[in-house]
Simulated scan of single mutants.
Amino acid sequence: MNPAPATRIAVLGAGAWGTALAAALARNGLGVTLWGRDADNVAAIRDRRENRRYLPDLTLPEGIYATTDLAEAVSGSDALLYATPSHTFRAMLRMVADLDPEAAQARPFLWACKGVEPDTHALMHEVVAAECTYPPPHGLVSGPSFAREVVAGLPTALTVASTDAEFAGRAVTWFHGAGMRAYSNPDVVGVELGGALKNVLAIACGATDGLGFGANARAAVITRGLAELMRLGHAMGGLPQTFMGLAGMGDLVLTCTDDQSRNRRLGLALARGLSPEAACEEIGQAVEGLRTARAAKALAARYGVDMPIVEQVHAVLYEDLAPAAAVQALLDRDPKEEIPHGGA
């Protein structure tokens, strides 16, 4: 499959994930402009094909041009890929619109942000709807993927979600190939929730593992966490198939079980007695689950959904509850049916 008609993608955000997606696109033959704020890091990417800050010791493929000039990156592109933290997504949309309002209304775009806007508790597609009066074709890319493995060319599967079937199919061709398999999905809400909520649940898994509670507890957190994700997803209009797929169960299992996950490492650090602030400083990169825990608790209340694991993670992060006490609170809950007798 050829990635036509788009030939140059501007990836906005030179962190680990943005760099990894830029590498995947470049391997598939697209021209890629990678924009970042850190001049030294951008210079290293451009001159030595290495993101020394976020992905040291990995060589990036040829075909990536790095710049700190946002106008240059946007003006020379056929499509945009926002790879910034979710809490800066709205600001980036505005920056691009201010640079070239006409182009912002015509150039298709994707986002790779996995989170919920902190203050509004909006999903990213809701941010797009608020900021773009007449948006061009758009969607998101998500699924189980660690940046280092994508840059290394290891086999990876991703989901491209968009309500525009033609655009979703076209965007899939940008990623599909060179060790990566891409799938399209029309369920934007479900894919966004899967990518966001798995970060909160990974904090819980890291904490239970850090406390030495074993594989049984980890499996329980993953499966009951998936049930919480599906309850909220159903209330918000997501599809069950999505939560059992790559962007749901796939991303959840990956993030909960491997120490490449910053969110899992946050949970491990909390179990060692570090404060959330000290743990994030130790990790040294953005940890999306920290903000998402607060938003997830608010969404659960808004939609009347029971999310006890999310509530306990929130209590550990924001209410000074000890991780061991949070686990005990979950164990002390009254027994209930996993599946109701006599009907669904």
Results as ranks from 00 to 15, higher is better:
residue 245 G to E: 03
residue 175 F to K: 02
residue 36 G to P: 09
residue 293 A to C: 09
residue 138 H to Q: 13
residue 39 A to N: 08
residue 310 V to I: 14
residue 108 P to Y: 01
residue 93 L to V: 13
residue 182 A to S: 10
residue 137 P to G: 04
residue 46 R to L: 13
residue 291 R to M: 08
residue 216 N to D: 11
residue 4 A to Q: 10
residue 105 Q to V: 09
residue 10 A to H: 07
residue 166 E to F: 00
residue 259 D to K: 12
residue 111 W to L: 07
residue 239 L to N: 13
residue 147 A to S: 12
residue 240 P to S: 06
residue 262 R to Q: 13
residue 273 G to F: 08
residue 169 G to P: 01
residue 186 P to M: 03
residue 149 E to F: 04
residue 267 G to C: 12
residue 315 A to W: 08
residue 136 P to I: 00
residue 319 E to P: 01
residue 133 T to Q: 09
residue 47 D to M: 05
residue 100 D to C: 08
residue 195 G to A: 06
residue 64 I to Q: 00
residue 178 A to H: 13
residue 189 V to I: 15
residue 223 T to H: 11
residue 273 G to I: 06
residue 2 N to A: 10
residue 11 V to E: 00
residue 178 A to K: 06
residue 295 A to D: 09
residue 91 A to R: 14
residue 282 E to K: 09
residue 2 N to Y: 03
residue 294 R to Y: 14
residue 230 M to R: 15
residue 194 G to R: 02
residue 126 E to Y: 01
residue 12 L to N: 04
residue 27 R to W: 10
residue 60 L to Y: 06
residue 91 A to Q: 15
residue 194 G to L: 11
residue 182 A to Y: 07
residue 171 A to N: 01
residue 41 N to D: 10
residue 79 A to W: 00
residue 34 L to D: 06
residue 226 L to C: 04
residue 293 A to K: 04
residue 249 M to E: 10
residue 305 V to M: 01
residue 8 R to A: 00
residue 129 A to Y: 07
residue 266 L to G: 03
residue 67 T to L: 00
residue 173 T to R: 14
residue 164 D to R: 03
residue 316 V to Y: 09
residue 171 A to D: 06
residue 60 L to S: 13
residue 212 G to R: 06
residue 135 P to N: 00
residue 330 L to R: 02
residue 80 L to F: 08
residue 249 M to D: 04
residue 328 Q to N: 12
residue 200 V to Q: 02
residue 30 L to H: 03
residue 63 G to L: 02
residue 163 T to L: 06
residue 294 R to F: 09
residue 186 P to T: 04
residue 305 V to I: 05
residue 340 P to T: 01
residue 291 R to G: 11
residue 170 R to C: 08
residue 156 T to H: 12
residue 68 T to P: 05
residue 326 A to L: 14
residue 38 D to M: 13
residue 201 L to C: 02
residue 82 Y to F: 15
residue 262 R to W: 08
residue 318 Y to E: 09
residue 317 L to M: 05
residue 194 G to N: 11
residue 128 V to S: 02
residue 290 L to Y: 15
residue 275 S to M: 11
residue 15 G to V: 15
residue 311 E to S: 14
residue 279 A to C: 08
residue 306 D to C: 05
residue 259 D to Y: 05
residue 324 A to E: 15
residue 111 W to D: 10
residue 229 L to P: 02
residue 212 G to F: 03
residue 79 A to P: 04
residue 319 E to T: 01
residue 113 C to G: 12
residue 58 L to I: 12
residue 133 T to R: 09
residue 197 L to Q: 00
residue 106 A to S: 14
residue 323 P to V: 15
residue 70 L to N: 00
residue 289 G to H: 00
residue 242 T to Q: 01
residue 196 A to D: 07
